[in-house]
């Protein structure tokens, strides 16, 4: 395993790019399904950064946090998809801008 020479900052570059893409998706999409997907991408990107950092120091902590992120993602998706169904039923649309009842 000594010949693994992936530079840490390259992994972090990838993680950053993924995060930014996810954020861009969050900003440009109005469909709630895509918004949830964008969130998954962002969570995943941050998980990648944690894993990379953990691996850099040779410690398990990064993977522990990855597990935590995994459970957050699972819980979020479970609730989020329940909300998707409710929104589809209430507004007959998946467009988040149709569900802007909390407008100030």
């Amino acid at each position: 395993m000594q010949d693994l020479v992936v530079p840490l900052n390259h992994v972090l570059f990838v993680s950053t790019l993924l995060f930014t893409i996810g954020m861009l998706g969050l900003m440009i999409r109005r469909n709630i399904i895509f918004i949830l997907m964008s969130l998954e991408v962002m969570l995943n990107a941050s998980a990648l950064a944690f894993i990379a950092a953990g691996a850099h120091w040779g410690q398990p902590d990064g993977q522990v946090i990855f597990l935590l992120i995994l459970s957050v993602a699972a819980a979020e998706v479970a609730v989020g998809l329940g909300l998707v169904l409710q929104i589809q039923k209430r507004f007959n649309s998946l467009d988040m801008d149709d569900a802007n009842r909390m407008r100030g």
């Binding site: 395993m1 693994l4 992936v6 530079p7 390259h10 972090l12 850099h56 040779g58 410690q59 993977q63």
Partner: peptide
């Protein structure tokens, strides 16, 4: 500014389980 390798050896599932 970050430098260095991304990995200093594989972290086994056992050590992850111990940490968890």
């Amino acid at each position: 500014t970050v430098e260095g390798p991304a990995s200093s050896g594989s972290v086994s599932p056992k050590s992850v389980g111990l940490a968890l």
